[in-house]
Design a protein around this nucleic acid. Structure first.
Length: 812
RNA sequence: GCCGCGGUGGUGGAAUUGGUAGACACGAGGGACUUAAAAUCCCUUAGAUGAAAAUCUGUGCGGGUUCAAGUCCCGCUCGCGGCACCA
C-alpha cells in the first residue's frame, strides 16, 4: 500500500491547477454571482502569518464550495503595498521600497500557492502600482470637487529625534517607541475627508448588515451619537475696583460661549463653565483675561501633552479665566469660567457647562477648586453626593417637579437653545509626511490656492528622485522632478502637495477594482460594478472594526452621493477570524520567540492538514491555540481517508447497491456539511466528515458514495481530495464537479429514542415511532417499568410531551 | 472607569437555539500486533459512592423564571480584547 505523501500530492496538484487555469476567473453571466473577499495583506518581510492562513483558508473553503454549487465566484487577492515598514527599511538599508515590496509580495504569492489557496492571480492588485493608485487619486479628485475634502490644522505626534511623525500606537509612555525620545505635539496643515458628514447613515445602515453583533455595536459606539442641546451662555467683562475681589458689576457683554450638553435639564445646577485649552475664547479674550500669563502657561503645557497623557492624568487640573464671567441663561446667575484639559477641543463645542451635583468629573473638579455644588435633580444617591441619573427637577424655578426627560426639551426652549445630535467621530485626517504612499494629487497656485491636478494628469506619479532620510519635512519636498513637473504643467511658482495619503485610503475602495482590474478608462466599468458589488462575504480580523471597515463604508456612501455607484454598503456579510495563539494561549510575537509560520507547518504536515487543523480547532471567530499535538488528529484522519480510498480496485464492490444504513449516513453527512459550511461552522463540518469515515468500516461502498464524500472533503483538503478523485478514474478536476445534494426521504428516521423525565430528570429512554402521538407517548412513558418505580404511589400533576424528543412527568 | 466578548472534562471544543450536557479530536490508562519500540487497531476515560446494578453531583459563583436552564432574567466574580475625562 502506498503511503500518504502530502508533499508529492500537493506539489503535483498545485502545478496542475495552475496549468489548467482553475482559479482564473471567467465571467459566466448565466450563473448567479458570489463575491468572497479576503482582507488583502500588507506584504511584510516576515511573510504570511498564521492569522492570514486561517482567514484565507476560510474564504478559500467558501470559494470552492460556492463554485461547486454552481455560482460564478469572484475570489481575488491583492496587496496593500504602500506603507511604513518598507520605507523604514529603505531608510536603514537604502533599498528602494519598490524592490522590497516586489520581493515580499512574491514571497506571499509563493506561500498562498503552497497553502492551496485558490485566488485568481491574473487579477492581482498592488496599491502601490500606478495603474491602481491612479484611481485612488481619481477618487480623491472626485471627493475634492464635491466638497468632501477639506484642509485644516491637524495635531500630530512628533518625534524630534527621528524627525518624523509617529502614530499613536508607537507612542509608549509619551515617548517614541524606537528612540525613547519625548514626543511633542506639532500642528500641521493637512487634508481631511469629511466622514462626519455621514455619521448618521454610518450608524443607521448598520442595521441592514449581516455582521457580528459585537462589531456593529462597537462601530456604533465609536461613531458615538449623543442627543443633547446647544446652549448659549453670554459672557461679560467685569470692571474691577482697586481690590481684585470687588468688582463694580456687570458691564459690557463681550460675547457668548456655546456649550453642548446631554443634560439641559440640569441647567439650573450649573456653577461654572469649562473651555478646552484649544478654545478660541482664550486667544480672543487675551486682553480681558487678567491672569493671561498663567492661563497661557497652562494652555501651552496642555497642548504639548499627547492625547494619552492628557487623559491618563487622573487628577483634575485647570485655571480660572479671571476678569470674565458667564451668565447662566436660565436664572441669570454669574458663573466663573475655567480652562481645563479634561475638556476636549475636538468634542462638542470644546466647552461645557459644569454641573458638579450631577456629573462625576465636574464634581471632582468642583471639589478640588472649592466651587459651588447645587443640586437640581432629586434622585437616590448611592453613597455619594452626586447623582448622575434622571429624575424630578428641584431648585429650578418654574420647572420644579418636572421629569428630566420633559425638562430637557422645555429648558432648551426656555433659553433659546437648540436640540441636536453630537458625534464622537472625528473627520479623517489623510495627510502623511511620508514617501511610500499615494501622492496627493493637489497643486498650489502661487497665491496658495489648492487645485486638483486633473484627471488628464493621472496617475500623478510618485517621484523617484527622493532621499527618504527623515529631515522633518515630507520627503517629496526634495524631489526636483515633482517640482519641475508641476511648474511645467501649471506654470511658474506653482508648487506640488508633498504629503502622501494615509494607506487606509488605498484600502477603502480596492474591492471595487477587483472585478475590472485591467480597465484603463474607469476604476471599474458600471456593468461590472452592477454585477459584482456589493461583496457577499468579507472575512478578516476584528482589529479592523474601527478604521478600515468604517472608512470603506464611508467611501461607498461618498461615492454614492457623488453618483459614481448605486449601492450604499460595501460588505453585506462580514465574519472575523480569531487570533492564532501558541499552545499555551499566548499571543505569538517575535520577541517571545513563539511564532509559528505556515512554511514550517506545511513542510511538516502538509497544506491539507494545516488548513484542516486551523478550521477544526474551534469556531472561526474564536482564537486558535496552535498545538502540534492537535494537528496530528487531522493528519491521522487524512491518512485514514488515504488508506481507505487510494486504490480504486480495493475500494469498490461490483454491485452499486448500498445499504440503507450507509445511504442514511451519507445523506446526513451531505446535509450537515453543506449547512455547516454555509454558516462558516467549519469545525463541526469537519467533525461530521470524521464521523462518516469512522462509520463506514466493514460497509460495502460504491463509487458514487466515495466520490460524494471526496467532494465534501475537497474544500477543506483540496489536494488529497483531487488526488483520490483522479484515482477513482475521473478525468475532470474535482472542483469542476457539482456539489452533492441529499435526499430528505433517506434521512427520515422511523424510530427515536424517546426520553422519559420525571420532574425534569432523565429516568428512562424508550424506543418509539417518530410519529408517536401525544397520548400514546404519555401512556408509554407512564407504563414503563423504570418510570413506575418513581411514580408509584405519587400523584401525577402534569405530563408534558415534546414531539420527537421527550415526555416529562411532573409529580408532587 | 466605559464598551465588547467570554468562563462547559486533564486539553481544544460540541450541544438541534429552552428539551438526553460533554459530539469530534488531543492527551491519558488498559489490551492486541511486535523480540522490542514506533505506527496501527480495539476498549475505557466528567466527578463521587459502589464488586456490580445503580444512585447522587456537575456547564465560574449566588439568586430567580419554567414542567424543563450551559442556553432566558437579576446580582456578583474572574479572564481576554478594545476605547479612554465624549459633556
Amino acid at each position: 500500500m502506498e503511503k500518504y505523501n502530502h508533499q508529492k500530492i500537493e506539489e503535483k496538484w498545485q502545478e496542475r491547477w495552475t496549468k489548467e487555469k482553475l482559479y482564473e476567473h471567467k465571467d459566466e453571466p448565466e450563473k448567479k454571482k458570489y463575491y468572497v473577499l479576503d482582507m488583502f495583506p500588507y506584504p511584510s518581510g516576515d511573510g504570511l502569518h498564521m492569522g492570514h492562513t486561517e482567514s484565507y483558508t476560510a474564504s478559500d473553503i467558501i470559494y470552492r464550495f460556492k463554485k461547486m454549487q454552481g455560482y460564478d465566484v469572484l475570489h481575488p487577492q491583492g496587496f496593500d503595498s504602500f506603507g511604513l515598514p518598507a520605507e523604514n527599511y529603505a531608510v536603514k538599508t537604502g533599498i528602494h521600497p519598490e524592490k522590497t515590496t516586489k520581493k515580499n509580495t512574491d514571497n506571499y504569492l509563493r506561500q498562498m500557492k503552497m497553502l492551496g489557496l485558490g485566488h485568481d492571480l491574473k487579477n492581482l492588485i498592488y496599491t502601490s502600482d500606478p495603474s491602481y493608485y491612479k484611481w485612488t487619486q481619481y477618487i480623491f479628485g472626485k471627493f475634492f470637487q464635491n466638497g468632501l475634502v477639506e484642509r485644516k490644522m491637524d495635531k500630530i505626534n512628533w518625534c524630534p529625534s527621528c524627525q518624523t511623525s509617529i502614530a499613536n500606537e508607537q507612542v509608549v509612555d509619551g515617548r517614541c517607541e524606537r528612540c525613547k525620545t519625548k514626543i511633542e505635539q506639532k500642528e500641521v496643515l493637512g487634508w481631511f475627508f469629511k466622514i462626519t458628514d455621514f455619521a448618521e447613515d454610518l450608524i443607521n445602515d448598520l442595521d441592514k448588515l449581516d455582521w457580528p453583533e459585537s462589531t456593529k455595536k462597537n462601530q456604533k459606539n465609536w461613531i458615538g451619537r449623543s442627543e443633547g442641546s446647544l446652549l448659549k451662555f453670554p459672557i461679560f467683562n467685569f470692571q474691577f475696583s482697586n481690590d481684585e475681589k470687588i468688582y463694580a458689576g456687570k458691564k459690557n457683554k463681550i460675547g457668548e460661549i456655546t456649550v453642548f450638553t446631554t443634560r439641559p435639564d440640569t441647567l439650573f445646577g450649573v456653577t461654572y463653565l469649562v473651555v478646552a485649552p484649544e478654545h478660541s475664547l482664550i486667544e480672543n479674550e487675551k486682553i480681558r483675561i487678567k491672569n493671561y500669563d498663567e492661563v497661557e502657561k497652562y494652555v501651552r503645557q496642555a497642548k504639548n501633552k499627547t492625547e494619552r497623557e492628557r487623559i491618563e492624568n487622573k487628577e483634575k487640573t485647570g485655571v480660572e479665566l479671571k476678569g470674565i464671567k458667564a451668565i447662566n441663561p436660565a436664572n441669570g446667575e454669574e458663573v466663573p469660567i475655567f480652562v481645563a484639559d479634561y475638556v476636549l477641543g475636538e468634542y462638542g463645542t470644546g466647552a461645557i457647562m459644569a454641573v458638579p451635583a450631577h456629573d462625576n468629573r465636574d464634581y471632582e473638579f468642583a471639589k478640588k477648586f472649592k466651587l459651588k455644588i447645587k443640586k437640581v435633580i432629586s434622585g437616590k444617591n448611592i453613597s455619594e453626593e452626586i447623582y448622575t441619573g434622571e429624575g424630578k427637577l428641584i431648585n429650578s424655578g418654574k420647572f420644579d417637579g418636572m421629569e428630566s426627560e420633559k425638562a430637557k426639551k422645555k429648558i432648551t426652549e426656555f433659553v433659546g437653545g437648540e436640540i441636536t445630535s453630537n458625534y464622537r467621530l472625528r473627520d479623517w485626517s489623510v495627510s502623511r509626511q511620508r514617501y511610500w504612499g499615494c501622492p496627493i494629487p493637489i497643486v498650489y497656485s502661487p497665491e496658495g490656492e489648492a487645485k486638483f491636478v486633473g484627471e488628464e494628469n493621472l496617475p500623478w506619479l510618485l517621484p523617484k528622485d527622493v532621499d527618504f532620510t527623515p529631515t522633518g519635512e515630507s520627503p517629496l519636498k526634495k524631489s526636483k522632478e515633482l517640482k519641475e513637473r508641476t511648474e511645467k504643467l501649471f506654470g511658474q511658482n506653482w508648487i506640488p502637495e508633498v504629503d502622501t495619503l494615509d494607506t487606509f485610503v488605498d484600502s477603502s475602495w480596492y474591492f471595487l477594482r477587483y472585478p475590472d482590474t485591467k480597465n484603463e478608462k474607469e476604476f471599474c466599468a458600471p456593468e461590472k460594478l452592477k454585477r459584482w458589488l456589493p461583496v457577499d462575504l468579507y472575512i478578516g480580523g476584528a482589529e479592523h472594526t474601527y478604521l478600515h471597515l468604517l472608512y470603506a463604508r464611508f467611501f461607498i456612501k461618498a461615492l454614492k452621493k457623488i453618483g459614481l455607484i448605486d449601492f450604499d454598503e460595501p460588505f453585506l456579510k462580514l465574519r472575523h477570524q480569531g487570533m492564532v495563539l501558541d499552545k499555551n494561549g499566548v499571543k505569538m510575537s517575535k520577541s517571545k520567540g513563539n511564532v509559528v509560520n505556515p512554511d514550517e507547518m506545511v513542510s511538516k504536515f502538509g497544506a491539507d492538514a494545516t488548513r484542516m487543523y486551523m478550521m477544526f480547532a474551534g469556531p472561526l471567530e474564536d482564537d486558535v491555540m496552535w498545538n502540534e499535538e492537535g494537528v496530528k488528529g487531522v493528519y491521522r484522519f487524512l491518512e485514514k481517508v488515504w488508506n481507505l480510498f487510494q486504490n480504486y480496485k480495493l475500494v469498490l464492490n461490483s454491485e452499486e447497491q448500498i445499504s440503507k444504513e450507509l445511504s442514511f449516513l451519507l445523506n446526513k453527512t451531505i446535509k450537515g456539511v453543506t449547512e455547516d459550511i454555509e454558516e462558516l461552522k467549519f469545525n463541526t463540518a469537519i467533525s461530521k466528515l470524521m464521523i462518516f469515515i469512522n462509520n463506514i468500516k466493514n460497509k460495502k461502498l460504491s463509487k458514487t458514495v466515495i466520490e460524494k464524500f471526496l467532494i465534501l472533503l475537497a474544500p477543506f483538503a483540496p489536494h488529497i481530495s483531487e488526488e483520490l478523485w483522479e484515482r477513482m478514474r475521473n478525468k475532470k478536476l474535482i472542483f469542476l464537479e457539482k456539489w452533492p445534494t441529499y435526499d430528505p426521504e433517506l434521512i427520515k428516521e422511523e424510530t427515536i429514542e424517546m426520553v422519559v423525565q420525571i420532574n425534569g430528570k432523565v429516568r428512562d429512554r424508550i424506543e418509539a415511532s417518530v410519529n408517536i402521538s401525544d397520548e400514546e407517548a404519555k401512556k408509554l412513558a407512564i407504563s414503563s417499568e423504570k418510570t413506575q418505580k418513581y411514580i408509584s404511589g405519587k400523584k401525577i400533576k402534569k405530563v408534558i410531551f415534546v414531539a420527537g424528543r421527550l415526555v416529562n412527568i411532573v409529580i408532587e
